[in-house]
């Protein structure tokens, strides 16, 4: 009886939830008449969110970079931010396309008569907002709340683990060898803080500054995190960097081949990225 009631309430909720009208991250009103069944996601983190909500089977295509969970690798790939393939997207007749606010893809797709929702996934808070919004769009609000709670629980576990550690190491995080780094207010910057690391970059420099090498040497970080191939060799061979603590002690954590995505994607797997940093800063 209880089961039946639950089933009935879900049906009811679905019936009353649609048509649903939501405001997307460009301030546009988007209305869905019925729960979407053919979805294209053009953002890797949103792909992960859709799947974490248990709606992976509704995806008909993703962008080139979506690679988690394993099943999405088989889907048609509709390009990236700089080289999207709108013809492929239109040909798949999706009833919802989730796109980034960068680029003009949404205009093209809308002219083709598709329903397009623009998502912003840049900050730590964006993770939860995106989960709730996507859940509502898909008619999965309850699952959305459960997912939010689950992510927060996982993150809290890692934070608690980090809090037990004694030290708070000075951290330099390098996203590419130009070198570009991350500011404290960026998504990765927030993760560094949660992992009880001290980012050597001041927040005045913005989200992704190109940093002066001598500044890094002067700040003498105890840990370096880098997310590109051959980073360890690259960093070790730099002039004057042999004096840096992290280089002397070998505490250079390099994450590539998928692990870097855990750190760069504000999505449902954020706690796994955080775990990498906690492990790196404080040991297992």
């Amino acid at each position: 009886m209880k089961k039946l009631w639950a089933f009935f309430s879900v049906l009811l909720a679905l019936a009353f939830a649609f048509p649903v009208t939501l405001t997307d991250d460009l301030g546009r009103q988007v209305t869905l008449k019925a729960p979407p069944k053919r979805i294209v996601s053009m953002l890797p983190s949103v792909t992960e969110t859709v799947c974490a909500l248990g709606a992976c089977d509704r995806l008909v295509a993703t962008d080139d970079y979506s690679d988690w969970p394993e099943s999405v690798k088989k889907l048609p790939k509709a390009g990236g931010l700089y080289n999207p393939n709108p013809e492929l997207i239109v040909s798949l007749k999706p009833d919802l396309v989730l796109v980034s606010r960068y680029g003009k893809l949404y205009e093209t797709l809308e002219r083709a008569g598709l329903t397009v929702f623009v998502v912003r996934t840049e900050t730590y808070e964006d993770i939860f907002k995106t989960v709730r919004t996507v859940a509502q769009l898909l008619g999965l609000s309850a699952q959305g709340e459960r997912l939010v709670a689950q992510i927060q629980r996982e993150v809290y576990q890692e934070e608690a683990r980090a809090a037990k550690a004694k030290g708070r190491p000075r951290v330099y995080y390098e996203i590419d060898p130009t070198p570009y780094t991350v500011g404290p207010e960026s998504f990765i910057g927030v993760l560094i803080q949660k992992a009880r690391g001290v980012n050597i970059v001041p927040k005045e420099l913005g989200l992704f500054p190109k940093i002066a090498p001598e500044f890094v040497v002067e700040k003498n970080p105890e840990v370096i995190v880098a997310t590109y191939p051959n980073a360890r060799e690259t960093i070790q061979s730099r002039p004057g960097w042999s004096r840096v603590r992290a280089v002397q002690t070998g505490r250079i954590c390099v994450y590539t081949g998928g692990e870097d995505n855990l750190l760069s994607r504000p999505g449902p797997r954020v706690a796994q990225g955080l775990r990498l940093l906690v492990d790196c800063f404080h040991g297992r």
């Binding site: 970079y65 990236g80 700089y82 996203i175 590419d176 060898p177 130009t178 070198p179 570009y180 992704f208 190109k210 002066a212 090498p213 590109y228 730099r238 002039p239």
Partner: peptide
């Protein structure tokens, strides 16, 4: 997707 690094390269770099 190393667009940023390529971009940086085409603008020159004396950092290292």
């Amino acid at each position: 997707d190393r667009v940023r690094a390529v971009f940086a390269y085409t603008l020159g770099n004396l950092a290292f």
